[in-house]
Design a protein around this nucleic acid. Sequence first.
RNA 1: GGGGCGUUAGCUCAGCUGGUAGAGCAGCGGACUUUUAAUCCGUUUGUCGUGGGUUCGAUCCCCGCACGCCCUACCA
Length: 514
Amino acid sequence: MSSQENNQQNNEVVAVDENHVIAERREKLKSIREATGGVAFPNDFKPQHKAADLIAAYANQENEAFEATPVNVVVAGRMMLKRVMGKASFATIQDGSGANAGSRIQLYVAKDMISEEVYEQFKHWDLGDFLGATGHLFKTKTGELSIKVTEIRLLTKSLRPLPEKFHGLQDQEVKYRQRYVDLITSEETRATFVARSKVVSAIRNFMIQNEFLEVETPMLHPIPGGASAKPFITHHNALDMQMYMRIAPELYLKRLVVGGFERVFEVNRNFRNEGLSVRHNPEFTMMEFYAAYTDYQWLMDFTENCIRTAAIAARGTAVLEYQGRELDLSKPFQRLTIVGAIQKYAPQYTLEQLNDEAFLRAEILKHGTKPFDHAGLGALQLALFEETAESQLWEPTYIIDYPVEVSPLARASDKNPEITERFELFVTGREIANGFSELNDAEDQAARFHAQMKAKEAGDHEAMFYDADFIRALEYGMPPAGGCGIGIDRLVMMITDSASIRDVILFPHMRAES
RNA sequence: GGGGCGUUAGCUCAGCUGGUAGAGCAGCGGACUUUUAAUCCGUUUGUCGUGGGUUCGAUCCCCGCACGCCCUACCA
């Protein structure tokens, strides 16, 4: 598309989106531009106080004290409410302070405290405009801490009307597409993302306290690896090569363990070219970590601690409520094998049936899933687990002993070569984390990659590629290690009681606006 | 990919199994010097998502399409 066409299209969008409210505000802005000699958006006002701090410090102070010792303040914020009377008015401004990044304080604007000219201007300022005000604190008749304004200025003219002041923004599509509007008007939305930030920093602190080194590994991979998923494919022009957005950082982080960084972690995005749902976004955040000389048992204890710490940091407690149901992260997480979980949550099956491949195949088909032809007993048990038990795992539960054939990067059990020292953590019926004792036998890993290539040839599109450099790295020797990935978005959903992954991602992916 | 529900003023929503639309907020004008979603009086604003069909007549009934939300599938 030429830039001219592009401009035409943008102009059309703007034109369609205009309305009489915006037109009115544009006229006001035009007058402001003329009156100010062109400086309609000044940037010389420096607020000295925040609404939340003033409320914390003075909400309990009475007028006598303010009269005895005047408290002069300088504040700025977006005007959210406005009550104009003949010679004096009230306005409520909101700034970014406070626990949920949005606190409000009331301004009392009286004609005799400012000039008549400024009062006339004030009357025509709109909800959404940014104001800067100077004045002193007092309590109104009803006891609300307010600022008696001696100077007030318009700092930024808002051209678009805010959502209805009482109900706020209700349209879910607009909340996702225009998150900025959602954040202005919804304290709940702001609280969710403040909590998300606390979760992430709590996890970082936890990792650093446990002597992990934070690293950043490539997002563009020449070979997609570390998980079974469909990658986004892109192209590097200068190198003229196909590249893949990473589906997991695993193989790079393990290269670092080979290099001698014995404890590493990375908090970053993974990209998977798969469906969108209430718990899937094409790009999602993962915290993945590796620790030398640890195994999957250690990882389970550690992960449990990490999650509990994050919940307490964000919510002050590990006893949460999710979608109306109690979710207790304070108790030790359960540990069940795949077969054990089926026996517990789908007791209609006998142990004999659960070890009968033909029976399992038929049963899985009944649930509407077709297992791969080459699926062995372990994979079939796993498939039945997913159909019958997984969604019932409300309380935190580690499912352990995953079959080798679906765990190409995990260390096999010393007691049973068919299973791996691997776990997945399920909470509220969803997978939250996946970890295992790492496979550090280069020859075994090479054989597993070959098996994956065969599976790919046999039609398994998600089977892994052979990564020769990763094998070379393992050949230098990787110390015994454990590694785990925690799905941050899902963890935040759980901790913030959010029903959809889109509620915990600031700008979730949507279809293009028509 | 399959199924269900939705789309009406800038926003929040009404709209009676069919007669080309209303309220509140916001805006504009007026009254009001302690309001709290301020109040009171007056007033502007709509391709009823979109394209067809049925009908004398469609926001309403039927079909297609677009977009969204939820469920479901792959997956974390």
